[in-house]
């Protein structure tokens, strides 16, 4: 029995060998820290003491209005952000492919540039656009005799923020989907054209299925990203007004680095992680990629 096991393992040795180096670094810098973080979530840290808290942190969080509000806000952002990212980046990458190669590069660079632009500039530009008193958008509205709009109001802030985040995060998915597009053999399209397929037909029948693995990737990673939004929200709305845009990460950061309660912060991280894992698992199920071509 054991011998058979070893035999099998020997046959599978290349699987392990190729993944070993990554696994080593991963164990050091991810696995151990994750386990440590989970452990810490069962402790209570205050200014004066730290002690075992069992599930105390979790209980307290699940009863905390502000935390629950942040969960709701975060989910709202995810629901708006992820489908929008998927649809827009997919359509955009297809349309970019219609241009000549040179122009393709230009467009991809353009969409990706926000990723390398200082976040201060990005915030500034949006403040210029959205500034209630002197901003460009309200100025344009004024030309048409429309009242000024407060884009960061209690009701609108979360939508505005999501739109802003979209503009700076489409670059990555577009690059990725474009790369995946490049991996689809042109011959497939030629065969379809011979069969008389229209533009849309071609893309729905060929592009979509062939890009499933990559689309799954974009879905999962943009979900994770949306759940972990922090920096831009901090600069834009600081979670306000009155908690309208407070995300889980915002609270986590406050708890860990301002209040010094790492235990509670890590408990938030664990809860967040569990939520994401569930959603990601559903996404994997929905976009199964076991079909080989």
């Amino acid at each position: 029995m054991l011998k058979r096991e070893f035999n099998l393992l020997y046959k599978e040795r290349y699987g392990f060998l190729f993944v070993a180096p990554a696994l080593l670094f991963f164990a050091l810098f991810y696995l151990y820290p994750i386990l440590d973080a989970i452990k810490v979530s069962f402790y209570k840290y205050t200014y004066y003491s730290s002690g075992w808290a069992g599930i105390g942190n979790y209980q307290s969080l699940l009863q905390d209005d502000v935390f629950l509000r942040s969960v709701k806000n975060t989910l709202l952002i995810v629901i708006m952000f992820v489908p929008a990212t998927l649809i827009i980046s997919f359509i955009l990458s297809i349309f970019i492919s219609l241009f000549r190669t040179r122009l393709q590069s230009v467009f991809k660079a353009v969409f990706y540039i926000p990723a390398v632009t200082s976040i201060v500039s990005i915030t500034f530009m949006w403040q210029y656009l959205l500034n209630y008193d002197f901003g460009l958008l309200n100025f344009l509205l004024g030309l048409f005799d429309i009242d000024k709009v407060n884009f960061l109001s209690y009701d609108r802030a979360i939508v505005t923020t999501t739109v802003v985040v979209l503009t700076i995060s489409l670059g990555g998915p577009i690059v990725i989907l474009s790369a995946a597009l490049g991996g689809i053999p042109v011959s497939y399209y030629e065969a379809a054209e011979l069969d008389g397929a229209s533009f849309w037909r071609k893309h729905i029948r060929i592009t979509l299925p062939m890009m499933k693995p990559t689309i799954l990737f974009v879905a999962v990673t943009s979900t994770i990203g949306a759940f972990q939004l922090f920096a831009i929200i901090l600069l834009f709305t600081a979670g306000g007004p009155n908690y309208a845009t407070t995300t889980i990460l915002l609270l986590l950061y406050q708890e860990a680095f301002v209040n010094g309660d790492y235990g509670r912060a890590n408990a938030m991280a664990v809860i967040l992680s569990i939520i994401i894992v569930i959603i990601a698992w559903l996404q994997f199920k929905f976009l199964r990629t076991d079909i080989e071509y």
């Binding site: 200082s118 976040i119 201060v120 915030t123 943009s222 990203g225 920096a231 901090l234």
Partner: peptide
């Protein structure tokens, strides 16, 4: 979506 680890100059302002 590319992963931005801990923000750029987010605390600057």
């Amino acid at each position: 979506m590319r992963r931005r680890k801990h923000g750029l100059a987010y605390l600057l302002v």
